[in-house]
Amino acid sequence: MKTLDELLHEHEFFKDFKPEYLELMAGCATNVIFEAGQYIFREGQEANVFYVIRHGHVALEIHDPRRGPITIETLQEDDVLGWSWLFAPYQWHFDAKAVKLTRAVAMDGKCLRMKCENDHTLGYLMMQRFNTVLADRLQQTRLQVLKLYD
């Protein structure tokens, strides 16, 4: 059995994190498993967590009354799910569904926010990592909305 900080260390998101920070992170972490079809979170719910996906397949969906759920993006191994925990009002914007059995590490957002508040070096590091994820997603979304294949 691997310890939580070992699991985190293996994840792309925490690549090159210093051991003491990984340990700090592990203090806010829990191992989680989602069954295929299970919703991880729902739009509007309180967002106090983010997930580093270790294995599986997660669909971010938005529900349209006429068309049903529409998948906006899918996430896999080594991806990070959720950033609403970072910004007020800490509410999920989309639905997240495990498409197949998904193993992840859940990171307690409240706990992390506090740690970042107390240690701005850590806070900067986290912001840097999340901004990279956000920038990638934004760029991909921009390409997606171009309807390139029409």
């Binding site: 998948t71 899918t74 197949k100 991909q140 997606q144």
Partner: peptide
Amino acid sequence: DYGDSDWHGNVG
């Protein structure tokens, strides 16, 4: 780019 509920593959 756009997946409906029947699509279980990648979106993006």
